[in-house]
Each structure stands twice: as C-alpha cells, then as structure tokens.
Simulated scan of single mutants.
Amino acid sequence: MQKVKEETMRFMRGKYHLDEVLGKYYENDCLRFRQGKKTIVSIILHEDHYDFQVIFGKAEREKFEEQRSGFPQFIVDIYDKAHTYHDGKWMLIRVDNMEALEAVKKLILIKKKPNRKPFPKENAVYGKCGHRCDLCIHFSGGTISEEFRKELEERLTRVYDNSDWSMRCSGCGTPGCHTELCDQLKCAKEKGYAACVSCKQYPCSKATVGYAELGAKSILADDVTWAILPYVPYQYGN
C-alpha cells in the first residue's frame, strides 16, 4: 500500500496540473482533483486503501468500450455493474495494490489527457539526491530573484505550514553546501553510495522530501508545481 500511495502521488501530481480540493465522502476525507469547477477524479483516503471515484460521460464510455479488452476483468465488472445517471457512469474502485492502481490510471487517462507541461531543463542544477537544486527555495547558487523567492516562501508556507525558509545551500560538494543535514545522503552513505541516485533502491520513500503521499489538505495546482514536485524523484529530474 505504501507503493500505491507514493505512485498515486507521482501520477496525479506529475501528470496533471489540477487543484486538490479537500472534502468529505460520508465520514472519510476525499480529495477532488479539479480543473476549474470540473472534477476529473475523486480519491477517498483510507489508511489501508484508496477508493477512486471516476465518472465517465458518453464519449469516455465509447473510448472504454474500444479499450475494454486491455483492462483486468475486475475493472470490466465494475464498469458493467456501475449505474449510469444523467451526468455519466459512476464507478467506485478500491485500490490497495499496484495492479489495481495501474488499471485505474488507464481509466483516468481516458477521462483526461495529462496537462502538466514538462519543466524546462536547460539551466537545471541537480543535487546528489536527484532533486532540482535550481528550483529549491534554499538554493543560493542559482538565479532565483528575491522577489520570486518571496513567492516561493508563500507557496511553501501554504503547503507545509512552516514559515522559516531562511536556510541557504550552494549545492552538493560546494563550500556552502548543507549535505551534512541531508537525511537522504546520510542513508546513501550508510549503504556505501556517494549519491542517492546511485542506489539500486532509488527512488524510495526517503528520496522524496515533502509529500510522499496524498494528504488531507487542499492544495492549489501551482503550489504543487513549485512546493512539491521539485522534491519528488523523476518529476523535474533528468
């Protein structure tokens, strides 16, 4: 289930530029991924599983019918048994393993094509952890203006409820680096590696700074862009 949580976070935030709106589904927390007022998918958060609520309109049902042979039987059964209302066919799918998640990801791709644009890499600076130093609020060796750093502080504070972002680092291996404070590199060193990206287990949950899974919190799409994804392996990486 931990893999499911991490991959759900990487997929939904890495593929889609959507606001995350926290609500309730009966007694459980529910994140609705929205573009404007349109909900693309809702994820009901449980400790031991996620419930994905996907609603297919007429055009999406036609696409599914074209692809149904490529879905696992349990997805086909859920689709066939789901009731069709005036606004579409409502499906609720329990996900607690990677096979189920991969099938649901295909459903979401039918619902909406990925809309997150690749981040420019021309001036990218990478740390030993694989993260983008040049997108990090702490990085002092780049071209982040103080005006933009202030905007980053506001975004990071909204996401992490922390107001102190004063620490500065000039990058791995430089005189002003702070790798001695980095839990990721401490882990890599204990395993005999000079960098996280050299480890056979990379990326792992330790390699993600910040959110490694979806939380019960509303987050704006642009805040995900600047406050979460720079610290997620293979999102803004090389």
Rank of each mutant, 00 (worst) to 15 (best):
Cys204His: 05
Ala221Trp: 09
Met1Arg: 10
Arg158Thr: 09
Ser145Leu: 11
Ser205Leu: 12
Lys191Asp: 02
Leu109Ile: 04
Lys112Gly: 08
Asp222Ala: 10
Lys63Ile: 12
Ser205Pro: 04
Lys105Gly: 03
Lys217Asp: 11
Ile75Asp: 01
Lys15Gln: 12
Thr208Glu: 02
Thr8Glu: 04
Lys37Arg: 15
Asn123Arg: 14
Val159Phe: 11
Leu135Lys: 03
Cys172Ser: 12
Val4Ile: 13
Phe139Cys: 09
Pro230Asp: 04
Arg34Lys: 15
Lys15Gly: 00
Pro203Gln: 06
Tyr50Ser: 04
Ile78His: 13
Lys112Trp: 11
Arg94Glu: 13
Thr8Cys: 13
Lys217Gly: 08
Arg10Ala: 13
Ala59Lys: 13
Gln53Phe: 09
Lys121Cys: 01
Gln67Ile: 07
Phe74Leu: 07
Lys81Ala: 13
Val76Met: 07
Asp29Trp: 06
Ser198Gly: 08
Thr174Pro: 07
Ala82Ser: 15
Lys3Val: 07
Cys199Ile: 01
Leu107Met: 14
Val104Ile: 05
Glu190Arg: 08
Gly127Ser: 10
Ser140Lys: 04
Glu147His: 10
Lys217Asn: 12
Asn115Met: 06
Asp223Ala: 05
Lys112Gln: 15
Tyr231Met: 09
Val54Cys: 08
Cys169His: 11
Val104Tyr: 02
Lys63Val: 10
